[in-house]
Design a protein around this nucleic acid. Structure first.
Length: 746
DNA sequence: GGGTCCCCGTTTTTT
DNA sequence: ACGGGGACCC
């Protein structure tokens, strides 16, 4: 058989209008990427034309469908690779897709417009930067730079940063950008009294500053692209024409700006295929709109909707438990996962639910279970502890350390977010483009060069007066007597150094130049002299940065790309238990999953309960669904009756989500008295009854006004009785809700 | 310009 | 309890 992906003519220039193709060819029904697809998957892959919404439940072969679909379009000669736009959210997903398509179609995959929303926008914007007031080599700011910039703007406008934390105002700007709102589109209603009613003005000034600095933040990448499309119809027409086929992964996570971007681009050919799962939408707090997926059929009339419901991951009890749980949500399109594969009966197990006394005991129980599994031959890599919030990993880490079990924590600060890396990058940025004002500010006095507020103020003043970049202003300032001799000398040396390094850009390999900069600036030295525990690690990280530089041809291209690759890929092949948040676990799977901390206030999180109303609760429930559906074989859900939060003991009620797990598919196993709801059944007695559980009385035996005693909170008076839950005013610990089984008559 | 003290917040995170 | 950040003082 001839290679179906061989190019039938020369590789065209992607920026020429597409040549007329010779025509679509029939794809053999036994093409390798079609073999073994189930009926729904097959439909999703072969319905290449027109709008298609693929609702893909967890573990239903979404990535396979996406990649097969790309192969199908290419093999059918429906489009050249560069006429296909494939969008993901993360670099990881983009890489995976590229690899898998590459394995099917060969080098053709290289020509696809495949990447994250942001990287694709950058690709477009670098070509059309002038249209939105930028230069092609604009820098992309990270969260730190953004905040610094906004603080400057706030300072200029005398906005009280105590009353209006820059962080939260930044949040407001980001949410507007997520919704495609430029400052002129924000209504005073939306701005409310933020920053004392001056929020829109701050936003406008912030945007102006960004343009002056030839910089864009992440939100701008989308926003500027939209602006480009709306103000330059010929540019829009070009891309509309070019992208005959559009594929979108994780559609439930798109925000309004991304949605508008897609809708504009799909307008001409209308061959847009969005793949997503409304039940796994867990990012509304960063602008994702489940609404996008819910109203797809309205946006794209005549859309084909395909539901992928055959799950190839989890055993039946796990699927049933997850399905029942998520059925408690009302705002959903509705899917029911069913087992797509027979499972080894030995692997089929109910979801286990375990109640324990407190956090440390929970950690002990989970780690004991890990040891048991390990003895049965399960690898540590097959196990994951998935928590609601990052701090919850601590107790498990401690227990794993004392037990001597290897683990890895996913999350935490990422490589390019580390202070030393950002400092070093600022040096590189400054050498690459001395007018990078933010980079200048960051390193001008780092390591300490005796340049304080006074010197900086002088530089800023001059820069403003003469509309100069900070670096140029600083150079100029050193020629005057404005500064005292000492700062003048050190600032002069700093500027001269930068210029000297800049002069070497073309003559020295960029990795060597980077080493020279970090060395001669005294930056590495600064950390080497630092006696803190983390200093040696920082020096190591700086070496790693130089190594990463070697992956790029030039310093320039490194700086252009690296801002978009902020990932934390800890490729570590050693056998370790994984600890991470539920959010971090989306898209992953493990044989054995531990879901601790299922307590009201922890999960669902208190803030969701307090603030977001039903929508927030439903998102928490989706998070629970995501957690359950990560598991192939075994799930252990647990909750503790007592939790220390901010160093204060608090009683906790079992999560309402536990009540939503169907009894037929769960196995509830708790120490006496730890089960909160009447629906709970004890399936086993503790081997070693806890002392506090000895004197239990049946529920409902307490009266309002009765004096009671609690192990942790001491004496108190019952204020209210609600089934098995008591509200008690403790003499010392304040008013709390407690299960009646924890207290005894005083 | 650098050190110290106090106050606040303390879910989730990618690009 | 704890850490980070800002204000304040030397």
């Amino acid at each position: 058989m001839t290679d179906p992906f061989a190019l039938d003519d020369d590789i065209p220039d992607p920026f020429q209008p597409p040549a007329r193709r010779s025509g679509v060819v029939e794809v053999p029904t036994d093409a390798p990427w079609l073999v073994g697809l189930n009926a729904e998957q097959h439909q999703a892959v072969t319905t290449t034309d027109g709008p298609v919404l693929v609702l893909s439940g967890a573990g239903t072969g979404k990535t396979r469908v996406l990649t097969s679909r790309l192969a199908q379009i290419l093999a059918g000669r429906r489009a050249q690779p560069w006429q296909i736009l494939a969008v993901t959210f993360t670099n990881k997903a983009a890489r995976e897709m590229k690899d898998r398509v590459g394995a099917m179609v060969g080098p053709l995959a290289e020509q696809l417009w495949l990447g994250t929303f942001h990287s694709l926008c950058v690709r477009i914007l670098r070509r059309h930067a002038e249209a939105v007031g930028l230069k092609s080599n604009f820098t992309i700011l990270d969260a730190d730079d953004q905040l610094r910039l906004l603080k400057q703007v706030m300072e200029g406008e005398s906005v009280d940063t105590k009353k209006w934390p820059a962080q939260s105002l930044m949040g407001a700007i980001q949410r507007w950008k997520d919704r495609g709102l430029t400052p002129d589109k924000v209504t005073s209603d939306q701005a409310g009294d933020l920053a004392g009613g001056r929020m829109v003005q701050l936003y406008r000034l912030y945007q102006e500053r960004l343009l002056t600095l030839n910089a864009a933040d992440f939100g701008d990448l989308l926003l500027h692209c939209l602006t480009l499309f709306l103000t330059h119809p010929e540019a829009l027409a070009h891309y509309q024409d070019q992208f005959r086929y559009i594929l979108v992964d994780e559609y439930q996570d798109t925000n309004v700006a991304q949605y508008l971007w897609l809708r504009l681009l799909a307008q001409k050919h209308k061959n847009i295929c969005c793949v997503g799962d409304d039940d796994q939408s867990i990012y509304s707090w960063r602008g994702a709109e489940v609404g996008n997926i819910l109203k797809f059929e309205r946006d794209f009339p005549g859309a084909t909707v395909v539901r992928l419901e055959s799950n190839y991951r989890s055993t039946p009890h796990i699927l049933a438990a997850a399905s029942h749980l998520i059925a408690h949500n009302s705002d959903r399109l509705g899917k029911t996962l069913r087992p797509g594969l027979p499972h080894d009966p030995a692997d089929i197990q109910k979801v286990r639910v375990r109640g324990v006394w407190d956090g440390p005991e929970e950690a002990r129980v989970v780690v004991e279970e890990i040891e048991t599994l390990q003895r049965r031959g399960e690898s540590l890599a097959s196990m994951a502890i998935l928590v609601r919030a990052g701090f919850q990993t601590r107790e498990f880490e401690e227990r794993l350390i004392t037990t001597g079990i290897a683990y890895r924590v996913i999350g935490g600060p990422r490589f390019y977010e580390r202070q030393e890396i950002r400092d070093a990058m600022a040096y590189l940025r400054l050498v690459n483009s001395p007018d990078d004002g933010l980079a200048f500010e960051r390193v001008v006095n780092l390591p300490k060069r005796g340049l304080g507020d006074a010197a900086l103020q002088a530089v800023h003043g001059l820069a403003r007066a003469k509309t100069l970049a900070l670096f140029d202003a600083a150079s100029l300032l050193c020629e005057t007597d404005e500064l005292k001799p000492k700062p003048r000398a050190s600032l002069g040396k700093f500027c001269a150094d930068i210029l000297r390094w800049r002069g070497l850009l073309d003559d020295l390999p960029h990795t060597e130049l980077a080493e020279m900069i970090l060395d001669e600036s005294g930056y590495v030295e600064m950390w080497k002299n630092d006696k803190s525990a983390e200093a040696p690690g920082r020096v190591e990280n700086l070496k790693e940065l130089v190594r990463a530089l070697s992956d790029y041809e030039t310093l320039q291209s490194f700086l252009e790309h690296v801002a978009l690759v902020m990932e934390n890929d800890q490729k570590d092949s050693t056998d370790k238990v994984t600890l991470m948040t539920l959010h971090g676990a989306k898209g992953l799977e493990f044989d054995n999953v531990f879901l601790p901390g299922w307590e009201e206030g922890v999960f669902p999180h208190q803030r969701a309960l307090d603030e977001g109303g039903n929508a927030a609760l439903e998102e928490e429930r989706r998070l629970a669904y995501v957690g359950l559906t990560r598991a192939r074989k075994r799930v252990l859900v647990s909750f503790a009756a007592n939790r220390r939060i901010y160093n204060q003991w608090q009683t906790a009620l079992p999560s309402r989500f536990l009540d939503e797990l169907p009894a037929a598919h769960t196995e509830r196993d708790a120490e006496r008295g730890l089960m909160g709801s009447s629906s709970w059944q004890q399936t086993s007695r503790p081997k070693d009854p806890s002392p506090w559980a000895v004197d239990l009385r049946p529920s409902g035996d307490f009266d309002v006004g009765e004096r009671v005693f609690h192990q942790k909170f001491g004496a108190g008076t019952v204020l209210a009785v609600d089934g098995d839950k008591l509200e008690i005013a403790f003499d010392k610990a304040g008013t709390k809700k407690v299960l009646d089984s924890f207290v005894e008559p005083a």
